[in-house]
Simulated scan of single mutants.
Amino acid sequence: MPSRYCQTIEAFEIGNELDLHCNNANSPTSAEWAKHHWQWFLSPMQVQTFVNGYGPFLATAAAAIRSAFPQAQIITYGNSLPAATPLIAALAEARDVNGKSIDYTQWVDGYGTHLYPVADTTFDMIADATGMLRNAAAHFPHLDKKTFWITEWNPSSSSWWNGKRRYFQYDAQGQSAGDLNKADARGRTPAMNRAGAIQAFNRDVVATLRTAQKPVNISHVFFYAYDSAGPSPKCSGVKYSWAKNGQALQNLCVDGVIDPTTGALLADVAAAVAGTGAK
């Protein structure tokens, strides 16, 4: 299909968030992760279950892709949990049925990772995202030759599943009456809207880690949104300037780059995601 339309494919990500279900073996389930407060608890047998399932699958998929798209990069599944990074490390220390060492990461060019910081200030968002990437860099093998691909990230979407209120629903005074996050209590970052927080992430997380004394080799960054189809109690304080049928929208979270009343791009958010100034 791509060759038919004179298109190329830059990369393939093999799987999605398999750390939550370990290659659909339910070992462990996401409920078990939650029970352990999203901290590492897997037994050696559970790790082996993951390696035995995902490793051969990854190798087979990579071989098939390279035969058809030799220039495309191969990326591991997007790792969703910082605590699960040892699963990727285990792929480099596997053994086959004869006990021979095998490094499944030899088939990939990079590692997928998902970042959804849990933070209602920009300062904490930067610290959380930086910590997650540094933690992954400490576990992922061969990072002198391979890259990180941030295949999902959003500064606000984690509020959908962590039980917290929407981060961007305050005014400049910290009251629930706007679309800003909170200012840092020690004055390190002001209250920002989503566009400002995204720009801060690009500058203070991605660019800073790429150029640090001990750099993290970050390649591509993809913005991902969980927009609701309707009002949510988490968004009770959100007040946008948009109006539909003459009435201002309320109690609606928007995490993406689309104005829900018109279908048009939100210029400031889209520009921040693209790494440019607002037009």
Rank of each mutant, 00 (worst) to 15 (best):
L91S: 08
A92W: 12
R95W: 11
D96E: 09
N98P: 08
G99I: 14
G99N: 12
D103G: 15
D103I: 11
Y104G: 15
Y104C: 14
T105K: 14
T105E: 08
W107N: 15
W107Y: 15
W107L: 15
G110D: 03
G110S: 08
G110N: 11
Y111N: 14
G112T: 10
T121N: 13
T121H: 09
T122D: 04
A127V: 03
A129F: 06
T130M: 11
R134I: 06
A137W: 04
A137E: 04
L143H: 01
L143W: 04
L143S: 05
D144I: 05
D144C: 05
D144L: 05
T147S: 12
F148D: 05
I150P: 00
I150H: 05
T151R: 10
T151I: 11
T151M: 12
E152I: 12
E152K: 09
N154E: 10
N154Y: 05
P155R: 03
N162P: 06
N162I: 04
G163F: 03
K164D: 09
R166T: 02
F168G: 07
Y170K: 01
D171M: 04
Q173P: 10
A177N: 10
A177L: 02
D179G: 10
L180D: 00
D184P: 12
D184W: 05
R188I: 03
R188G: 08
R188S: 09
T189D: 08
N193D: 13
N193F: 00
